Amino acid sequence: MRSELLAARALLSADDRVTAASALAVRALEMPEMSGADTVAAYVSVGREPGTRALLDALRARGVRVLLPVLMHDNDLDWAAYEGEHRLARAARGLLEPAGDRLGTGAVLDARVVLVPGLAVDRRGMRLGRGGGSYDRVLARLAAAGASPVLAVLLYDGEVITRVPVERHDRPVDAAVTPGGVHRFDGAAG
């Protein structure tokens, strides 16, 4: 399933990706949870992922503290504040990461909204990631701490599908944001 979804993304033109990124930012910013958020955990899109730069800059312009992940050697995620595109550095696996001070793996607990990457989500809110497990750790950390930020996956239209494979450790997200709109889920993984 991952290879099929990645192949579909590879067919998107540069213009399609730019248009989708703009619409995605608008849709995400329309979420009521975003209007009251003082801290949002997000990520910098790379490759053919749905674009996040416009959203990151819009959040920062609103005075929102934006946390971005920093991939550690064990695939867990540390966090640092987004200080603008000029403060992003190329890191392992082609990722772009903030160059600022590291805040620790628990910094994500301060976020009111956590935006996560994915390849697809199903109608139960179960997310299909790339398989590295980094965000599975983040979601488990949030649950273990009793934190309840809104969890939203950023996707292209057509990536909200009927069913994705689920493993025991997988946790549902609350919403999927696509260029076409926000899809809400009840979190029932059954």
Rank of each mutant, 00 (worst) to 15 (best):
G51F: 03
G51S: 05
A54N: 07
L55N: 00
L56F: 15
L56S: 07
D57Q: 12
L59G: 12
R62L: 10
G63M: 08
V64H: 09
V64M: 03
V64N: 03
V64G: 03
V66R: 03
V66F: 09
V66C: 02
L67W: 02
L68V: 01
V70D: 06
L71I: 05
D76R: 06
L77R: 06
L77I: 09
A81V: 05
Y82S: 02
Y82H: 01
G84T: 01
G84V: 02
E85W: 01
E85V: 04
L88I: 08
A89R: 14
R93Y: 15
G94H: 01
P98T: 10
D101M: 09
G104Q: 03
T105K: 15
G106Q: 15
A107Y: 08
L109C: 07
L109F: 05
L109W: 03
D110G: 15
A111C: 13
R112M: 11
V114D: 14
V116H: 13
V116P: 15
V116E: 14
P117Q: 09
G118S: 07
G118V: 00
D122S: 11
D122C: 13
D122K: 08
G125C: 07
R127W: 00
L128I: 04
G129C: 08
R130V: 04
G131P: 05
G133W: 04
S134I: 00
Y135V: 01
Y135M: 02
R141K: 03
R141V: 10
L142G: 15
L142F: 15
L142S: 15
A144W: 00
A145N: 09
G146V: 14
G146D: 12
V150H: 04
L151Y: 07
L151S: 03
A152T: 02
A152L: 02
A152Y: 04
L154V: 07
L154G: 10
L155D: 13
